[in-house]
């Protein structure tokens, strides 16, 4: 899949985020990270808590401003975009958050949240409502869930709705920030199956950046994996190969810990 004749759909070059705290040491959360995400690929990023995974994905989604480096979406630099230009980026890139229930506005129904990106892109309220029902069905929930409130559904159902919301605008990249971590194992598997089905349906036009701390999930789901440790990428490769022959001490510890 990597030898696609088109360029990478997402490219990150030397991305760095430094947190400065007054009177204390500075913390380099992400330290010169570079990688590419190819069309149709599912790229896993694995690492322990504090290794900078979430900061990295927040910078890619432009929720945090990087201190250095570049983010290129389909060859276009988006590192410093603001306002309307930045909003156009979100038609290509969407995100699924770690805590499903918190990612929906508690004062609005799920359907309202799913249709928001459509309404912002010129859909009428009625058309957006109808589409959010279809999206929910595509994600394995009854269309009637559009009328529900976030506090009325379980974590797994809410995460399905969050995926439906992310898919609404037909993005080419889906960022999953620990999207399965808050769910129990059987629901985790269901969500992974759903993401797998969606990948098959959408083919090369749909890439996933899958942030996770569970190497078993990454092995099962991803085409390629990056191992992050203390803000740096310390290892890269096919998941099976990385698991069989880890080269970095952290990766070795990680694999030993589950065996």
């Amino acid at each position: 899949m990597q030898d696609n004749n088109k360029g990478p759909v997402l490219e990150v070059r030397d991305l760095t985020k430094i947190y400065k705290r007054r009177g204390q040491d500075t913390v380099t959360a992400v330290d010169g990270v570079s990688f590419s995400l190819h069309p149709g690929e599912c790229l896993g990023i694995i690492g322990e808590s504090g290794s900078g995974k979430t900061t990295l994905v927040n910078m890619i989604a432009r929720l945090t401003d990087p201190d250095r480096g570049q983010i290129l979406l389909k060859g276009r630099e988006i590192t410093r975009l603001r306002g309307r230009d930045l909003r156009s980026v979100y038609a290509e890139m969407q995100m699924v958050f770690q805590q499903p229930a918190d990612s929906f506005d508690p004062r609005r129904t799920l359907g309202d949240g799913i249709g928001e990106s459509l309404r912002n892109n010129g859909w009428s309220a009625a058309a957006a409502r109808e589409e959010s029902g279809k999206l929910l069905e595509q994600c394995g929930l009854p269309a009637g869930f559009a009328e529900r409130w976030p506090h009325e559904v379980s974590g797994g159902q809410c995460q399905r709705a969050a995926i439906a919301r992310a898919l609404a605008i037909r993005p080419s990249i889906l960022l999953c920030d620990e999207a399965t971590s808050a769910l129990d194992v059987t629901i985790q598997q269901e969500i992974l199956d759903l993401l797998g089905t969606l990948r098959r349906q959408m083919g090369a036009g749909f890439s996933i950046l899958f942030i996770c701390h569970d190497i078993a999930l990454v092995q099962q789901f991803c085409d390629r994996v990056l191992v992050m440790y203390q803000g740096k990428i310390v290892e890269e490769g096919i998941p099976d190969a990385v698991i069989r022959k880890p080269s970095h001490p952290y990766t070795r510890r990680l694999i030993d810990s589950i065996l």
């Binding site: 909003r87 979100y90 969407q94 995100m95 990612s103 928001e116 990106s117 919301r165």
Partner: peptide, 8 residues
């Protein structure tokens, strides 16, 4: 953040 990603 989700609202921002929805293009609001």
């Amino acid at each position: 953040k989700a609202a921002k990603l929805a293009g609001s």
